[in-house]
Amino acid sequence: MSSARAARLLHAANPSGILVIVAALALWQIAVATRLLDLRYLPAPSEIAVEAGALIASGKLFVDLGHTLGTTLAAGAIGAGIGIALGIVFGLFQTFRLYTASSIDFFRTIPVTALVPVAMLIWGPSNMSEIVVAAYAATWPILINTAGGVRSIPTRLYDVAAVLRLNRPALLMKVVVPAAAQQILVGLRLGIVTALVLAIVAEMLINPRGLGWGVISAQNALVPERLWAYTLTIGLLAYLLNMFLVFLVRIALPGSARQMADAR
């Protein structure tokens, strides 16, 4: 490994940031151990670690993690399909915008959590409910960003496509989609992170599976170590998922946009 690459990795790992986390955990540990902080349901980090170890050893944590992650990705994919397709139509056709803009604004601004009970009544305590809620939530940021990306395409590019005699599919695939790609990818990242949040909410409220249910059942059983283990797992999952998506967006960008971003 070259020293430049090592320096970059070190920078990416952000040692100063990790130091703060380690220090905070240490303080927490000391405060609880010395009874400086004496709350009945606040365990020390060491106790949480032991519980997390047991959950990992039994395989339960991975089953729950797999459920939540799988739901999130499935919902993200559904949201991407609907959001990108509708976003392109919305961005391209003024008439469609005229008829649908108000409805879209209304539906996207309803806090999705308020729709969780609706899904519960329709589909019951099922994976279906959870996926529908998460996919619904993922659709809007993808749709809005795609539409914005499409609308910001310079009109000159449509002239260019016309004088070069591109037909409609070629216009879409060779001009519209790549021109909007950067914003579509931003929408995808936001959409998938939103899907994760709603998957967990749905697991807490209606579908007794996954990490969200893990948190709630630990709370009900008055086992704070387990509750914390699940909560921290959710935090870690969200953090890693976001980081992975940022990375994915970077490598998926069309060549020039990536170079432009790197040049900045």
Partner: peptide
């Protein structure tokens, strides 16, 4: 505005030929 920034020079020139 008339060139496609995500395409290289060569691929810009090929656009009409692709169509």
């Amino acid at each position: 505005q008339a060139l496609l920034p995500w395409r290289t020079v060569g691929r810009n020139v090929e656009l009409g030929l692709e169509a």
